[in-house]
Write a protein that binds this DNA or RNA. Structure first.
Lengths: 331, 331
DNA sequence: CATCCGGCTGAATGTTTGTTTAGAGTTTTA
DNA sequence: TAAAACTCTAAACAAACATTCAGCCGGATG
């Protein structure tokens, strides 16, 4: 389990922290000023530094913006990859995990959604943005399509996996859009329910009947609300900060830009990182961290899937038998 | 059937034309330069005029941009309102009409979609944009919700109309987004099919079974492909340019910025306006024009709906009877 | 025909902003 | 400890841009 930071000198780590500090300042600045009116003075003010600093760490304003988009893209990719891995092999659980990831509080904040749309709009002009955005979208679509196809095959369904994946992707993007337009009125539960409604009406055995989908999903609660991940985080960190490894708490703290005291508190389970900080941790260490900490949550999701599947399959069998009695097998 | 242009002097008409010319130049300029890099010089170049002209017809660059957004919004509203009216009272046909309108070639062009997203992204900052965009979205959602609710009630379905309307809106927005990201790869038919797949799985009687929705929809063809609307347009125009009305072909031509010769060609059915020009016509005359010209197309859609409904209702009745025999009425 | 007036332009203006540069303060290295 | 390297800032610079304005041109008006 090698860590990226082992290969870097302290100077390089420090530079990396400054760059990230500026990138995060850029995100805040775009969210408050807008992309079009963004100036380096805004970024510097957010970062608490002088305007000229940007041209020191990034060659130009354009490069800062590209780096910001790359940062957001990497964060998004890492999150849903980890969620899918944690969901195990079941395609239904994987799709559910992707929906959860799409509305995960680390990504799905008013600030970040605003910034995403700013880049998306601008990507039509700037080829540098465009390529990156297209690659992200394609990767996400491919993954969705794969799980849909497997689900259709395993479940013996007869719909076009491309149409399903396409529709699901579009719905998620559209819900992000709704959130952009009016974050106050947006209800995350309702959004997830709409996605499940779509899947449930196509795959009733795995996602429950469409009728059931209108009932607020009491399961599949917010990841944050689950207790136990504080302990899991501490354990996962301890494994990585084992005495005979070169990395010590203070190194990790320096790598992610917090004090050593903060890291010690996490290890002592007396506090826990914000979701944003959690993303930094996963970046500084490895993506496996995500799975170890949040895996059990998705594991729970998976188990509920299996139970629901068994129940609805029973009902399905009875219904099918009833039709068979009349000699008119269901098409 | 009063026409707005009757109340305007020639000078006012001329001013209105220039304003629209500048607005359309702005749309092209944003599509090619992007919102952030847009300069008045770009707009002027697109319009074939000098940069200072903008501050003559609009007090400032900001006002030009607001006017541009208002123009797009009015066009969008008019289009789907007309489509819904033409669809008659059936909620299913209305929903189908709204889907058709959302991907209508007048609106759904790479240029306009780019510009829409540019404004949407910027709407997070500029309250002037924000209010307008929110109002448009709300109106569209309300309409969708209404038709969904009626469909659910009439059909005896048991899903939450809000979740359906929400999901459908999100899917349409998301498909626009896909188009933004990669217009080359986008297939309009596939997009419409995904929307119908969603509706079909919830309302199988009105939209056909989900299984059927994977077959390319040979019906519901593109509005443009229907012959006959050239004749309908000529007739509709003749009614409005009747000899004893004050408006003559040359007035109409001036109002929409074409030559009188062009209008005469439309009347003679020897040519037809582009979809964009059709939008101008409806604006200069009245929205009813849309219905007269394109109504029969949506009428055809409605008839196919009725036929499909009758066929699937028959099958449904048989199935229900089969279940009743077993004394286990379908829940 | 002379006059007037609105439409439009080219040049000028003042502001904003990205970038450069010289150098001060601090840390690291020899 | 001295020198070198690094980080960061303040000021200067140059380019881009929205906006203003004086005035030209062409058609309408008397």
């Amino acid at each position: 389990m090698p860590s990226p930071i082992e290969n870097l000198t302290k100077i390089e780590v420090s530079r990396e922290n400054r760059r990230r500090q500026l990138i995060e300042a850029t995100v805040r600045a775009i969210a408050s000023q807008g992309y079009a009116r963004l100036t380096l003075t805004d970024v510097a003010r957010e970062a608490g530094l002088s305007p000229a600093i940007v041209n020191f760490y990034f060659k130009s304003k354009d490069q800062l913006l590209v780096a910001t988009l790359e940062h957001l893209g990497a964060e998004y990719d890492a999150l849903w990859h980890a969620a899918v891995s944690a969901a195990g092999g079941s395609p239904a659980a994987a799709l559910e995990a992707m929906i959860e990831a799409d509305f995960h509080p680390q990504l799905f904040t008013p600030e970040k959604v605003k910034v995403w749309f700013a880049f998306w709009a601008e990507a039509q002009i700037q080829p540098a943005y465009r390529d990156l955005v297209s690659r992200l979208e394609a990767g996400y679509y491919k993954e969705t399509h794969e799980h849909c196809a497997r689900l259709i095959e395993q479940g013996g369904y007869r719909v076009d996996p491309a149409a399903v994946a396409y529709g699901l992707n579009a719905m998620v993007d559209g819900l992000w859009f709704d959130y952009l337009i009016d974050p106050e009125a947006f209800e995350v539960d309702m959004a997830k329910r709409s996605c499940r409604l779509f899947l449930a009406s196509l795959f009733p055995r795995e996602f429950g009947r469409a009728d059931a989908a209108i009932v607020p999903a009491e399961e599949a609660g917010d990841v944050r609300s689950h207790t136990g991940h504080r302990a899991r985080l501490a354990a996962a960190l301890k494994r990585r900060l084992h005495p005979n490894t070169p990395m010590q708490p203070r190194d990790l703290a320096a790598a992610i830009g917090v004090t050593a005291e903060t890291v010690r508190n996490w290890l002592a389970e007396s506090s826990e990182p914000s979701s944003g900080m959690m993303g930094r941790l996963a970046g500084a260490l490895d993506a496996q961290l995500w799975i170890e900490v949040y895996g059990p949550v998705y594991q729970g999701l998976r188990e509920r899937f299996e139970a629901r599947l068994a129940a609805t399959r029973e009902a399905e069998t009875q219904e099918r038998a009833a039709l068979d009695v009349l000699g008119r097998p269901r098409s």
